[in-house]
């Protein structure tokens, strides 16, 4: 492939977050408003994050499937101050780990600031109209 920098320049900010060709389909999917997660064609396991080899069986035949987009909060934290390198303009915001219906855990951010503990709450993914430049958020359902 051509240099990644060039690709990124063409693809917009969300697609440019990929660090390698192996992770690019996930970010390209988000930029189109689709939550794509990798699945190993050898053992059939979903996994996250995307990589060249399956962490369950070391298989290298990896496909991307569209996730249902629903899951459960397994961890949540609301940033209340802007420490070094935290995104100050976003504070307060609620970071979450979400267990998808497909079984894998994916990091993300809640659409709103959580009021109180939300571990165990069901959530669904929500894309902005300009998904190519704005990351998805998780909404409490």
């Amino acid at each position: 492939m051509t240099t990644r920098q060039d690709d990124h320049a063409d693809r917009g900010p969300v697609a440019s977050l990929a660090s390698s060709a192996a992770t690019q389909p996930h970010w390209d999917g988000l930029a189109r408003g689709e939550l794509l997660i990798p699945r190993c064609e050898s053992c059939g396991e979903f996994f996250f994050y995307p990589r060249e080899v399956c962490p369950s069986c070391a298989g290298r035949d990896i496909s991307f499937r569209q996730a249902a987009g629903t899951g459960t909060v397994v961890a949540a934290s609301t940033a209340r101050v802007a420490l070094n390198a935290w995104p100050a303009e976003d504070v307060p915001y609620t970071a979450v780990l979400v267990r998808l219906e497909e079984g894998v855990i994916i990091p993300g951010r809640l659409a709103q600031v959580a009021e109180g503990p939300i571990v165990g709450a069901p959530v669904e993914v929500s894309f902005a109209a300009n998904a190519e430049s704005e990351l998805p958020r998780w909404k409490l359902t």
Partner: peptide, 14 residues
């Protein structure tokens, strides 16, 4: 941290 930093999952405290 490719899949964490963009959502603000950064540093050690969070």
């Amino acid at each position: 941290v490719e899949f964490e930093e963009p959502y603000g999952v950064v540093g050690t405290v969070i």
